[in-house]
Simulated scan of single mutants.
Amino acid sequence: MSADLVLDGLDKRFPGSPTPALHAFSLTVAAGTCTAVLGPSGSGKSTLLRIIAGLEEPDAGAVRIGGRDVAGVAAERRGVGMVFQRSLLFPHLTVLDNVAFSDRVSGTSRRAARSRAEEYLEMVQLRGFGDRRVGELSGGQEQRVAIARALAAEPAVLLLDEPFSALDPALRSDMHDLLDAVRTAVSPTIVLVTHDRDEAARASDRIALLEHGVLLHEGTVLEAYRRPQNLRAAQIMGGRNEIPGEVRDGVHHSALGSVPVPPETPDGPGILVIRHEDVAVLDDGAGSTDAAAIAGVVESTRVAGARSEIVVRCGDARVHAESPPTQRCQIGDRVRLELPVSAVHVVAA
């Protein structure tokens, strides 16, 4: 049911727009995997999905599905399913007939189409809902039906355009669990568009960061958070620490002092980035041998759920960190920060 998706050098510019919607965009999504395309509003995410689906034609570049160039292939013949933020279900049909729609259009008998539709409704945990009307469903149930309808067409590639963004946090978590179950059952190739980095990390195998139509970064979820390819990628993933300096012989020198970096880090100007979650806050004087220990003074604190966000002034540099609620840091406290070498990363200045 799944197939490799290869996007090669896509360009797209809309008339009257001063900037391209996509520029030289290349990405490969391996069969049966999920890549989340993450970026701010207006970054080109939805345009990308529409080009894959055949609803827009690129000005340049190619879309290949299972090795086949689909240029000029009609949307309904590409083997692509799409689920939008709004479910777009047919209100005049029952839930069962919504899911059976693609089979009926292809000429399958009503009995056979409905039988297959029941299987997909069970897959999305809506067994027994087939006789209901769309107006009787909750928002989460509508999206489950939309996913079942898309899967019933047996697409090689499933496109999800922020399908869970209108749901409350608990329902979104349920939908992420559902997506896991669907992937286990039928293993589609998925491209998930979202502006929520937590959702991207939870639901996908890899993350592609897009801004102004340009691919900033592509890699595993861990790489997106802790090994971003550039400073803007780090910022989009919520990074808060950016310390300019220079790497010499495995050490980053900056206003923060001398911080050991991973051995593969090249010499030259670079910006040290480290996730605030990875910075350990210790009492002044404490420290270990496998991390840089930097002395500083707590400049501000803010409770954020189960943890506290702390800003520490270290000479002319400021470092963001987190501490558990059992560790009570006050403004003016002298502390020591540990920066584990394995968590330190340097991007080009």
Rank of each mutant, 00 (worst) to 15 (best):
S323Y: 00
A74G: 14
T220S: 09
A321T: 05
Q235Y: 11
V6S: 14
F129L: 04
A317F: 07
A30R: 13
D161H: 06
E246K: 14
G268C: 06
I52H: 00
L339Y: 06
V145S: 00
S46K: 00
A153Y: 02
R275G: 10
A3P: 05
D267V: 01
E199I: 05
P324W: 01
E118D: 15
M123I: 00
A280P: 10
D249Y: 02
E211I: 09
S258F: 10
M175G: 11
G81C: 01
L121R: 04
L215W: 13
H176A: 14
I274W: 08
T265V: 05
R132L: 00
L216P: 06
E246N: 14
D161V: 00
Q143G: 03
S102H: 08
L171K: 06
G239C: 13
Q143E: 07
H195L: 08
L55Y: 05
L89I: 02
A31C: 09
L339F: 12
D177I: 12
V298Y: 04
A304L: 15
G268N: 06
D205K: 00
G32T: 07
R248V: 12
V221M: 06
L88Q: 13
A286S: 13
S300W: 07
R240V: 15
T47Y: 02
V335L: 11
R248Q: 14
A24L: 12
Q229T: 15
V261I: 01
F90R: 01
P58W: 05
L282S: 07
D249G: 11
L222G: 10
P20S: 09
A53Y: 08
R68Y: 09
V105I: 15
D59P: 14
T220F: 12
D103I: 11
V303L: 12
I331H: 07
E242T: 15
A148W: 02
G285P: 08
A185D: 03
S204L: 01
L337Q: 05
D69E: 15
G315S: 09
L256Q: 07
I310S: 00
S102N: 09
A60R: 14
E162T: 13
H217P: 09
V303C: 12
I274E: 01
G67A: 10
E119L: 13
P58H: 06
S41M: 13
P340D: 03
T265Q: 02
L272D: 00
D103T: 13
E264I: 10
S342D: 11
D180C: 04
V346H: 02
T301A: 10
G32V: 02
T35H: 03
L126E: 01
P266I: 02
E119Y: 10
G9Q: 15
G315W: 02
A30V: 12
I207C: 02
V261G: 07
P188G: 05
N98K: 06
G66N: 00
A21R: 01
G268W: 07
V6M: 13
A306F: 03
A21V: 04
S204C: 08
F164R: 06
T47R: 00
Y120G: 07
R172I: 05
P18N: 08
S43K: 04
I271G: 13
L55M: 04
E136G: 04
S26V: 10
A317R: 08
L216E: 12
V124I: 03
G9N: 15
G219P: 14
P325F: 14
V303K: 11
G213N: 02
C329V: 15
